[in-house]
C-alpha cells in the first residue's frame, strides 16, 4: 500500500558496519530503519542516525559537496562518496554501508589512512627544482597548453575510493596505488617541475607502476574524473621508453 503512505511515513533500511574495538573483537552489522526522503544522500541518512537514533556511530565527513573527499564508504559493496550517493537510487531496498575496503578500520565507518598518507609523501607530489629561482625572478610561468597536460590529474581530492576499488592494492598492500601515482604523474607532466627522474626512480619499481595490471576500477570509481589508470599507463610507457633508451644508448645517460 505504498501509494497510500504519506511521504513522512516512508522508511528505508540501512545496514551499517559497526566496530567498536573496546567492546567487540569482531565487526557486526547494525540495522537502522529511518525516514526516507527523496532528496537525501547516504550521508544525510547517517547524520540522521547520529543525531536522532544512535550518537555512537562514527564516520568522517565535512563538506557535503564532493570536494573534501572525507566521506568515502562502501555503499552496497561499491566505493562511493556518501555525500553524492542518493537514497532514491536504492529505495526501497536496504542499503549496506561499510568502511572503505582494503584499509584497516579504526572504528565503525572510519578507516586508518596512515598507509595512504605515507605513500602520498613517498612519491614527492610537489614541484621539485634543481635550483630554486630567486624571488625577484618572478613566477614559474606556464602556458594554457602546458597546464592542460596535467590539469585533470591535479583534480584528485584524496578520497581513497580508488584504493578501495583496486584489487591489486587488496592483494599487495605495498603497491603505491592509483591516487599517489596519478599525483606523481601530475608533477611529472608539469612544465615547471624538474623532479621527473627522481620521481620515476620511485615509481618504476614493482611496488610502483609495475604492480598495476590495468584493471581500471580506480578510474571507474573516481568521483573527480582523474583517470588514475590512464596516469599509470602513461607512467609505464615513459618508464619503458626510458629503459629502452638506457639499454640501446647506454652512453647517452646525461
Amino acid at each position: 500500500m505504498m501509494a497510500e503512505q504519506t511521504v513522512a511515513e516512508r522508511t528505508i533500511t540501512l545496514e551499517v558496519f559497526r566496530y567498536r574495538p573496546e567492546q567487540e573483537s569482531e565487526p557486526t552489522f547494525q540495522t537502522y530503519e529511518i525516514p526516507y526522503r527523496e532528496d537525501w544522500v547516504v550521508l544525510d541518512a547517517l547524520n540522521y542516525i547520529k543525531d536522532s537514533v544512535d550518537g555512537s556511530l562514527t564516520y568522517r565527513w565535512s563538506c557535503r559537496m564532493g570536494v573534501c573527499g572525507s566521506c568515502g564508504m562502501m555503499v552496497n559493496g561499491v566505493p562511493k562518496l556518501t555525500c553524492s550517493t542518493f537514497l532514491k537510487d536504492y529505495y526501497p531496498h536496504p542499503i549496506r554501508i561499510e568502511p572503505l575496503a582494503n584499509f584497516p578500520v579504526a572504528r565503525d565507518l572510519a578507516i586508518v589512512l596512515d598507509d595512504f598518507m605515507a605513500k602520498l609523501v613517498h612519491v614527492r607530489p610537489w614541484i621539485i627544482r634543481r635550483q630554486e629561482e630567486p624571488l625577484e625572478a618572478g613566477e614559474y610561468r606556464q602556458t594554457p597548453e602546458e597546464l592542460d597536460r596535467y590539469k585533470h590529474f591535479s583534480m584528485c581530492i584524496n578520497c581513497m575510493l580508488c584504493y578501495a576499488a583496486c584489487p591489486i592494492y587488496g592483494l599487495e598492500p605495498e603497491f603505491v596505488g592509483p591516487a599517489a601515482i596519478a599525483l606523481a604523474q601530475r608533477y611529472n607532466l608539469d612544465s615547471r617541475d624538474q623532479g621527473g627522474r627522481e620521481r620515476m626512480g620511485i615509481l618504476s619499481t614493482h611496488e610502483g607502476i609495475w604492480a598495476c595490471t590495468l584493471v581500471g576500477e580506480c578510474t571507474t570509481v573516481c568521483p573527480a574524473e582523474v583517470d588514475p589508470a590512464g596516469a599509470i599507463q602513461q607512467a609505464k610507457l615513459a618508464s619503458a621508453l626510458g629503459w629502452l633508451r638506457r639499454v640501446l644508448v647506454p652512453w647517452g645517460n646525461k
Partner: peptide, 14 residues
C-alpha cells in the same frame, strides 16, 4: 624479473 619488467611490459603492450 622485477628489474626487467619494462621489457616484458613493452612486449605485452606491443
Amino acid at each position: 624479473i622485477h628489474r626487467s619488467e619494462p621489457f616484458w611490459w613493452l612486449l605485452f603492450a606491443a
